[in-house]
Write a protein that binds this DNA or RNA. Structure first.
Lengths: 212, 212
DNA sequence: TCCGTTACTGACTCTCGAGTCAGTAACGCT
DNA sequence: AGCGTTACTGACTCGAGAGTCAGTAACGGA
């Protein structure tokens, strides 16, 4: 009675495991085909299960896509927070955020976000989720700046405004790199981000590490 | 013989006029429904013509959407160039670009662009067009910076890099305002853009006009 | 050992939308 | 006036995809 679901979990999937597995697969499919281009069938095929199973766990395709976005968002934020929590001093912590947030070689989640922005124009669920992630990200950036100021590593008059500017710059840069790779390299992108950051935090440009 | 098409144009549409009219209507529809959500039928209804007429002028829906994007892009660039050509001195010219590029109250074309970015992830035609617009816009910004430096109004070491940073920041800001209006007002957005611009161009922040 | 429940199947329905096509009417040209 | 051309119509086809549902097999509990 204490754990009715758990007792079945030994050799079978629980509902929660299955849902997570489906969300995971959906993310992969959406990365290939986009929100608009993803069919329920594609997700089923990805897992080698039946079409009907997806509808068994998710009431509609819309719900599936919205939950997939939230799932991916939580992942991204968790990854960033982890990067922040483990690094010091302040400058390394900050730079690690930049490197983690900006799109990297194997990075795919940017594609998801760019796609989600477009979809969010017409879908309230997605709009809400993308806004949540955005605010969480700016808040994290602001926190790292404030901590740095506290430690005496940075000088910054208005951490909130600086965080917004840096976040906006990085969104714009990431967009360029992911969408039109030819126009800008990751190196240049990092260079731009660090240049603005140095200005905003009252540092010398060369204070930043050369790491990519 | 000199003008076979023109002779019919007196009381009838030429093919070119019709195409332009359809592209115009398509843009309006796409703004409401997005690239993914626009049906050929919606465009026909917008003009009060038949479904078949759209296919008479455009081979496929894909072609229609791609040409619509190009049509809108040309419009946007022309508007920016006009703003630049007529304004002086350099600072007013630059500020006018900012005000014109950033999303305004009645501005809708941003919605089109955000949507196009997402679509471009999977559509080579749209990707190419959005890249063209982007490069034209950065080139224009760079030109205005160089001219300002020439006139002695600005100080800027690397106009190309500064143009990229300002452009990226503005893309990021515009995205915020259009997508999550609550998180940032146009006033704040302009404030952020001018703050970065002042830094990049070696100016005092208060050198900029207060115009919105 | 039987039985109710639950996770799952896959064929089906039903809607929707892109593209087609036979037909039409107005035009300009001869 | 007669004729070929052209812009346009709207009913149709055809494929595709979301969601349904009757059926099934494995489970745990009584």
């Amino acid at each position: 009675m204490a754990d009715t679901a758990g007792s079945r979990a030994r050799n079978r999937y629980t509902v929660e495991q299955r849902r997570a597995e489906i969300l995971n697969a959906t993310r992969d499919v959406v990365l290939r085909l986009g929100f608009g281009g993803t069919r329920v069938r594609d997700v089923a095929d990805e897992l080698g299960v039946s079409n009907g199973l997806i509808h068994y766990h998710f009431a509609s395709k819309d719900e599936l896509l919205a939950e997939t976005l939230r799932f991916a968002a939580n992942d991204d934020i968790a990854r960033l927070e982890e990067a922040v929590d483990t690094a010091r001093p302040a400058l390394e912590r900050f730079d690690r955020m930049l490197r983690n947030y900006l799109p990297g070689p194997g990075d795919v989640s940017w594609r998801l976000w760019i796609d989600a922005w477009g979809e969010a124009l017409r879908n309230e669920n997605l709009k809400e989720i993308s806004q949540e992630l955005d605010e969480a990200w700016v808040a994290l950036l602001e926190r790292v700046i404030r901590d740095g100021v506290h430690e005496g590593a940075f000088t910054c008059e208005n951490p909130r405004a600086s965080a917004w500017r840096i976040a906006a710059l990085m969104d714009g840069l990431g967009l360029q790199v992911v969408l039109h790779r030819s126009t800008m390299s990751r190196t240049q992108m990092l260079e731009h981000a660090r240049t603005l950051a140095a200005i905003e935090l009252g540092l010398e440009r060369k204070a930043f590490p050369a790491r990519r």
